[in-house]
Amino acid sequence: MLVKDCMTRHPIMISPETLATEAQKIMGENDVRHLPVVGDGKKLLGLITRERLALKPDMMGSLNVWEITRYLSNLTVVKVMLPTAKVHTVDSERTVERAASIMSEYKVGCLPVVDDGVVVGIISEIDLLHSFQDMLGLPADGVRVTVRVPNVKGEFAKITSVVSHQEWGVMGIGSFPSPRHAGFYDVVLKIPNVHKEEVRAILSQTAGHEVVDVRDVV
């Protein structure tokens, strides 16, 4: 899966002259946490996040109520935004996991998706979580089974051959190193229209495979 498939297209964007208060309102009303700031031709100029709009406590202390109001009424987003140079971006042809790694590495909640300087979308933690759900087949009913297999070539093929032999469908699939069991991989499958016990019985027949967990997911 690539970024372009999982990003939100046509994100809400604002112009640099937008007032900070206006930006805050847009965020609140549309339930978004990031607003790319764009210039002519949707060129990325910066990014506004909720923290960026928060007043700094030291400043609050030094201003009285009227001064704060006046300060806010003149404050445009261009003054508070995170400028482009500091915004982490990704282009639409990268993979989802690369986007995820950028986000986790820099601890950012979202990445504007930029092609040739032009914002084409935005990818946030939520989008990644959505694609994670989709990957493991969460939205649909079925049996979710976790099989622990040795980290040896050909083991995965055994599972697939069993599945295809049974003529089961697979709606979601994922594999990752078993936690606290070096040398093993946990393979998660989501299989529709089958019975939990049937799946456990059939999948555990393969030598070396262990069904760690099986459950009906609704």
């Binding site: 046509h10 964007m13 112009s15 847009i26 549309n30 002519d40």
Partner: peptide, 19 residues
């Protein structure tokens, strides 16, 4: 996109329209 168009200045509208 959550932004009010009525009452916006011509310049801002032009940019939104174009882009």
């Amino acid at each position: 996109q959550g932004q009010e168009l009525v009452g916006k200045s011509g310049e801002e509208l032009r940019r939104l329209r174009g882009d």
